[in-house]
Design a protein around this nucleic acid. Structure first.
Lengths: 113, 113
DNA sequence: TTAATAAGGAACCAATAGGTTGCCTGTCAA
DNA sequence: TTGACAGGCAACCTATTGGTTCCTTATTAA
């Protein structure tokens, strides 16, 4: 099921919006290929809640899974995050920043924050 | 009001989760320093809805505002996005990707998608 | 000085999100 | 072959979100 880019992008942004899900990605980043129960360890949530979060991450294509016997291994997929970095972050990057930095310091000089 | 990093980060991720808000950032990126009514133009939403979105972006420190008479100008602030890019995206960057690419193609070779 | 304009405040509403509990299915090991 | 274990399904609940409408305030221009 190949989504059009903006829709895929929306799914990724929304998946990343939740701290628990970012935490799960973090754990997978530290050790890839964990099962659901492993990912539940130490979390203040039921297994079903974690399963839902993982489903959302999978839907956003941020994790891929592989069934192995009665276990389901979860693997992080860095591609969508990089895609967003390309399409979204780059345009706010340093070179653009220069023009805006002037403005920002101007604003700050006028008593903002 | 200086938030601790993770909390600030959470605000940014959540602000970016909504497509309308990303669209507003896009518009500000194309032309900076617009007023509320300007930002409303062509959007299928009431002014108040847009104002709420802008408030959330401002809360996340993604836009800064400057009152000028009865108008309020909105300026994009690229710093938080870059901060997230630094703290979050970099660790899923290319060099890490190499190790994972092998895994990914392995998974795909086994009939995923 | 007053009408128009830009924005803010607040109450309200429907839909969605995040979480729970309870139960079912499939696989492995004793 | 049967219990224990990993996971899936679904109903349900509450808080949050994205949006509306109505009203007020402040600034500007005629």
């Amino acid at each position: 099921m190949k989504l059009p880019i903006p829709q895929q992008e929306d799914a990724v942004f929304r998946a990343l919006a939740d701290a628990s899900r970012r935490h799960l990605l973090d754990r997978l980043h530290r050790r890839n290929g964990q099962t659901l129960v492993e990912l539940c360890e130490g979390l203040d949530m039921t297994r079903q809640a974690v399963a839902k979060h993982l489903a959302i991450l999978e839907e956003a294509n941020l994790v891929a899974t592989e069934r192995q016997g009665r276990e389901k291994l979860h693997f992080i997929n860095p591609v969508p995050i990089n895609a967003i970095a390309e399409r979204w972050i780059r345009k706010f990057e340093r070179r653009h920043l220069s023009a805006l930095a002037a403005l920002k310091s101007k604003l700050e000089g006028e008593g903002h924050d």
